[in-house]
């Protein structure tokens, strides 16, 4: 695929961040973090509420200005050329909605034109399994459908990097699994994904590498596997031996795997 060649071009790091700092009055939300993201990987940002995940992601998206430090996306300096960066990335914001009085196809096409692209709205909606809702308005969509729409919209410009800020928060187990499938399929097409999440199971399932943030700093960064092995090497054990299935497995086996919000 031609597009795949394109996305794989150049430097092997598609995101390069160095010493990024962001302060709000006397609060340091991001405190000198550095990391690189490889082309084609799914990179996870983990950390408790207020750790600075959204702030970090929004600096990379060109939506906030860092106080110091640099960030490059595909070789473009985000601080200097935010618009150029915006035009090659896809963005799903933590809590942003779309226009109430528009149909889904209209929303997708509109965003296409904002990037100067003619898009096949139905095609994109089909990719996120919203083809049946193509002609309905945004307002009555369920939470899961809204999340999927925002991913369809984030894909309109065939982005080099896709930023997803808590894409599965508030979704039921079926919808969450469905979202995982979607993210994997996006990765399969060669798109790099930066993801924040509070669900460790999700990070384990999706992320090639994760960075764990706390109070604005990255305290640890590696593959989920390595991090788990390291912990076990310290002699860590659960108080209670975990069973081979948990309540989520029960839930899925009771209610099935299919999406419910159709």
């Amino acid at each position: 695929m031609e597009q795949r060649v394109n996305k794989a071009a150049g430097n092997s790091y598609v995101i390069e961040v160095e010493n990024l700092v962001k302060r709000y009055d006397d609060l340091t939300a991001v405190n000198g973090i550095s990391f690189n993201v490889r082309r084609g990987e799914v990179f996870g940002l983990l950390g408790p509420n207020g750790a600075g995940k959204t702030t970090t992601v929004e600096i990379l998206e060109g939506m906030r200005k860092a106080d110091s430090g640099t960030a490059f996306i595909d070789g473009i300096d985000v601080g200097r050329q935010p618009k150029r960066v915006k035009s090659i990335i896809g963005v799903q914001l933590q809590s942003a909605q779309f226009f109430d009085h528009l149909k889904l196809t209209e929303i997708v096409s509109l965003f296409g034109t904002l990037y100067g692209k003619k898009v096949d709205a139905n095609d994109l909606l089909e990719r996120v399994n919203l083809e049946e809702k193509a002609g309905s308005y945004y307002a009555p969509l369920s939470g899961g459908q809204k999340q999927r729409l925002s991913i369809a919209v984030a894909l309109v410009n065939d982005p080099v990097v896709l930023f997803l800020d808590e894409p599965t928060t508030g979704l039921d187990p079926q919808a969450r699994r469905h979202m995982w499938q979607l993210i994997k399929s996006i990765q399969d097409e060669g798109t790099t994904v930066v993801l924040t999440t509070h669900y460790m199971e999700e990070a384990e399932e999706l992320c090639d590498r994760v960075a764990v943030m706390d109070s604005g700093s990255i305290i640890r960064m590696d593959t989920p596997d390595t991090l788990v092995e390291e912990l076990l090497a310290t002699g860590f054990t659960h108080d209670r031996q975990p069973k081979l299935a948990n309540l989520e497995d029960v839930f899925i086996s009771l209610t099935g795997r299919s999406l419910r919000d159709e």
Binding site: E61, G62, M63, K83, R84, K86, S87, V91, L93, S95, A96, Q97, F98, F99, D100, F111, L114, Y115
Partner: peptide, 14 residues
Amino acid sequence: FRAQGVLRRLFATP
């Protein structure tokens, strides 16, 4: 629009 974050979403485009 601002309360719904619609404007922020537009701001994420070029």
